[in-house]
């Protein structure tokens, strides 16, 4: 039943968008229903916990319904919504963390991570590790890895230098490796010969 509902939604996404522009609350609810789980996933990656992700999702969707009239039906609607969510996360980050810069640390070589370990980890475990990253590292890692931003773009969006962006990414990767290893209590070296 739900599946057929979503099939219908996909088919009539364009109509739903048009109705949402007209302010029809039923269309907006359906649009939310269709996109919320994906976008909540995006928001979770940018947040320290679920509460922050919920706030981010809420702000993002309010923005979506406010600006939906400016969507030109040219690119992917989902991509457009996702960009709004990322922008909301960036906005939140700028508001909360710009005044508290994270101490930059040198890149250090953490324990090595086996491919097998990561493939065995669930998405939820990995999400938790990302959540635990310091805000700026998390932001840089997300923008670089998931949104495909280059360091120059990240530096502009986050009002930091390109060098800082690079070092933050390296640091984020190192922490992630370290955490994964710790969580599973296995030393990657064991597998190396």
């Amino acid at each position: 039943m739900i599946l057929t509902n979503f099939e219908w939604i996909l088919k009539d996404l364009r109509q739903l968008i048009i109705d949402s522009v007209a302010g029809k609350s039923k269309a907006q609810a359906q649009l939310y229903q269709y996109l919320a789980p994906k976008m909540y996933g995006v928001c979770l990656r940018y947040s320290k916990d679920e509460t922050e992700a919920e706030d981010n999702l809420q702000e993002g969707f309010l923005k979506v319904f406010e600006k939906i009239g400016s969507f030109r039906h040219e690119g992917s609607f989902e991509g457009w919504v996702r960009r709004i969510m990322v922008n909301a996360a960036l906005e939140r980050y700028r508001k909360n963390h710009l005044m508290h810069p994270v101490e930059d640390m040198g890149v250090f070589d953490g324990p090595e991570l086996n491919e097998q370990i990561i493939s065995e980890m669930s998405a939820k475990d990995l999400m938790k590790i990302i959540n635990e990253l310091p805000p700026r590292y998390r932001m840089v890692f997300n923008l670089y890895v998931f949104e495909g931003f280059n360091h120059k773009e990240i530096a502009e969006e986050m009002k930091i230098s390109v060098g800082t962006s690079k070092s933050n990414l390296a640091r984020a990767r190192a922490i992630l490796q370290d955490k994964v290893v710790k969580v599973f209590g296995e030393i990657a070296n064991n597998y190396s010969a």
Partner: peptide
């Protein structure tokens, strides 16, 4: 063994890019 950064990124990407969770 993951030495290449791209490999780590890819692995995270593959697990989390399409991650979905029902919000409250």
């Amino acid at each position: 063994m993951i030495k290449d950064n791209n490999q780590l990124d890819d692995l995270f990407r593959s697990k989390l890019d399409d991650f979905e969770q029902e919000p409250p």
